[in-house]
Design a protein around this nucleic acid. Structure first.
Lengths: 201, 201
DNA sequence: CTCAAATATGACAACGTGTCATTTTTTATT
DNA sequence: AATAAAAAATGACACGTTGTCATATTTGAG
């Protein structure tokens, strides 16, 4: 989390720094990105940077938090629109996700270099410890009659599976340079498999 | 891939270097690891290192390749033993996986810092492009009558799903410091969900 | 035994990180 | 408005890391 000093800055200056960071993290992974480039683009001194953030990881996760918060909102909205139909919602959500062109390079870098710490930010929706409330919020929106889970614990694992598969497809979209259509087609195949089950009964 | 010079080295010296690398990558992630530490532990000069490998990534993936090759062999053996029952095989495979204590710290670092590039090494089993043959090898061992896939393409996606969920559980075992039993219990819940399907029909 | 090819070496330039003494700006107080 | 104290900004610096390269050493073929 940014230090207090950062929040005390005029919004405009905050935004400058954020823009510079987005630029740098769009052309380099977290470990390859350099603070020197960021402060140069933002027009601040190196010392100041360390007065705002603990280090580049801090800034990186601050950006990521903002982004994932937006996405969760979008997801919840879709879930409401589909009246709690999880799979219909996932399908729409994925379409929107891969079609969105904003911050494309940033997302590419994030996804291709996604570590457990980063992934957790994305699927925190279903992470019991870090956001019990977020899970409840989502859980309440979902029409459980359509799902094959017999309780909260199973619902948790069910969501985890769906999120894993979704993220993995998103990553592959970048890793294999798929077209939007190809990626959506792949995702639909996997959603269908998930819904109907992998075992023949 | 290591350079020719490395393979020309006496096995003993190769092993020394590999041991030193395992040690370093057990206490640091790929990006945090330092070549200085490795060459010091191996008793070679920095210059020599660069005559054997392109850089630390090269060495890292060389180690990883060796490890994943072993695991794939183990997986195929189990699959044969279970007469092609994929889910029984996965269950046994996972048990063995989380119970294995060798190179624990190395695996922890690998898994918690797993990027797309690293993950691909693990699930290359089901990666069409990089190892068509590996896919066929596995595919031939699997009893498809027990699975709900209607062709090669679906089987491919089915395996991808299973691998994603498996790896995600393995990562969580480290990330959340689960006990072996907890992790296996979680995995079994998810396998059951996968088998029977997530939607209520 | 000789000499060319292969291998080993560590000093070095370039770059990156986090710190800190110092300077500049802002805020509060009289 | 003048002054003091607190907050913020700065960039030089110590230290670590990477990849290279001119030089030294070893190996092997004739």
């Amino acid at each position: 989390m940014p230090k207090l000093t950062f929040y005390n800055l005029p919004i405009e200056k905050q935004q400058h720094l954020i823009d510079a960071a987005k630029q740098e993290f769009s052309s380099a992974s977290l470990s390859d990105a350099s603070i020197a480039n960021i402060v140069k683009a933002a027009g601040i001194s190196r010392g100041s940077f360390y007065q705002y953030f603990e280090g580049k990881e801090d800034l990186y996760f601050y950006l990521l938090n903002g982004y994932t918060a937006e996405r969760k909102k979008i997801f919840r909205d879709i879930l409401e629109k589909t009246k709690g139909d999880l799979f219909q919602a996932m399908s729409e959500f994925y379409r929107i996700t891969v079609n969105e062109e904003e911050l494309l390079d940033f997302k590419r870098n994030v996804l291709l270099n996604m570590t457990e710490q980063v992934e957790t930010k994305f699927i925190k929706i279903v992470d019991e410890e870090e956001s019990e409330e977020e899970f409840k919020k989502i859980s309440n929106l979902i029409d459980k009659n359509k799902l094959n889970s017999s309780g909260n614990k199973e619902l948790y694992h069910l969501l985890k599976i769906v999120m894993s598969v979704t993220i993995r497809n998103w990553i592959e979209y970048f890793a294999k340079n798929l077209t939007v259509e190809e990626s959506i087609a792949n995702y639909e195949i996997e959603l269908k498999l998930l819904r109907t089950g992998l075992s023949r009964m």
